[in-house]
Design a protein around this nucleic acid. Sequence first.
DNA 1: GAGTGGTCTAGACCACGGC
DNA 2: CCGTGGTCTAGACCACTCA
Lengths: 235, 235
Amino acid sequence: MNPLYIQIKKRITESLVGGLWHPGHSIPSEIELAQSYNVSQGTVRKAIDELAAEKILIRRQGKGTFVASHNEEHNQLRFLRLTSSLGDKEKLDNKLITFEKEKASNGLAKILGINNASTVVSIKRVLTFNEKPLILDLIKVPAASFRGLTPEKVIEKKGSMYRMYETDFGIQMLHAKEKIRAVTASAEAAELLGVSLDSPILSVERTSFTYDNKAIEWRLGLCLTENHHYATELE
Amino acid sequence: MNPLYIQIKKRITESLVGGLWHPGHSIPSEIELAQSYNVSQGTVRKAIDELAAEKILIRRQGKGTFVASHNEEHNQLRFLRLTSSLGDKEKLDNKLITFEKEKASNGLAKILGINNASTVVSIKRVLTFNEKPLILDLIKVPAASFRGLTPEKVIEKKGSMYRMYETDFGIQMLHAKEKIRAVTASAEAAELLGVSLDSPILSVERTSFTYDNKAIEWRLGLCLTENHHYATELE
DNA sequence: GAGTGGTCTAGACCACGGC
DNA sequence: CCGTGGTCTAGACCACTCA
């Protein structure tokens, strides 16, 4: 049998997945949870500690424990690791290129955990910083999970896809895996990013996950790294 | 005043830095530490919990708590994020190109936290996988911290620089920051890696740190990513 | 002042490793 | 069997937030 605090953690996660508690709002206090689960406060505390470490919950002394939300300004770019090498502040913008529905390839279906040839929404866009194109994104999400996703919504949200997923579809991005390569610009990428053919491009392939490691989005980002770099930390 | 467990954590870290306990060996049991620090076992436990989360200590139920070591086989490549896209097992090898001592530039001195124009050891090498060149590394470390570092040592250790730092110089790599870019192959890189001029190359600039965030090594890795990718996780 | 999370303690019992 | 870390509990007190 699993340790008690792991079971409590699971039950809390289930309440989160089930939508019992909502992002940005508080969950019951440790004492209340301890009573309703019939365990000691210390056990609830340990369960919440882990969820807080995973950034799924946020503790605030004196106020309570809250469901993490990515709506706040400073969280907008939580998953955007590309930063200016000069350290200047930049104005982010979003230009939609295409918005289509299509059948998922076998590989994509496997990654997203959906049936072969299920419908996916395919979005192509260019992110600009200070009016200059920097990233060409190709994004694919299961249509079934995002009914009502329209080109207008993508444009309206100005590039904050993950924020839109949360507010409009109740789907939260919790973590992601990336594969990074150096490639040369294709004809399309060269044109959309405004560089010459065969310029070096940083290719970032990302699969994003929500609760319980359920894949929810696949995307390929092609980034210019002349004045920017991808920052990461090894531990 | 800091919480007690933070103070205990600091005292444990000091013992590690001071070399009182050695990598791979066990530290005193929680009960002994609690007695010698005059705190409860729970407080020591919380301090060790954090150090274990940072992979500085390793707990083993029934055996004790050990100082993390990177000598084990499976830890060899802890900081090598480049993996084969095909998933095959590969034979790693190491070819030393140049080994020189030089004066640190101002930028490098600042990164490494040493005086301007201090002497650094500069190493250039090529890492091969299955006999094929894959990474061109340029490594710079403060000469003062690595007295006795010779070309022979680099060759002998077959690419495990961090292992050598630990066993031969008592310096442990704990974490690192990286900046990643896509660039084109210089004439030198093209020749050493066996690709054509202007091929796309993944540039990985790394600064590595030991205890207390002290920088200890700077390196630039130029990687071929035709059949490999750099893997990372966002959380 | 009431309620929240944060720290600290003391003690009980469990699970694992090695003698 | 003993000693280790791992879990769980109960209770005390502190620090912070807000009415």
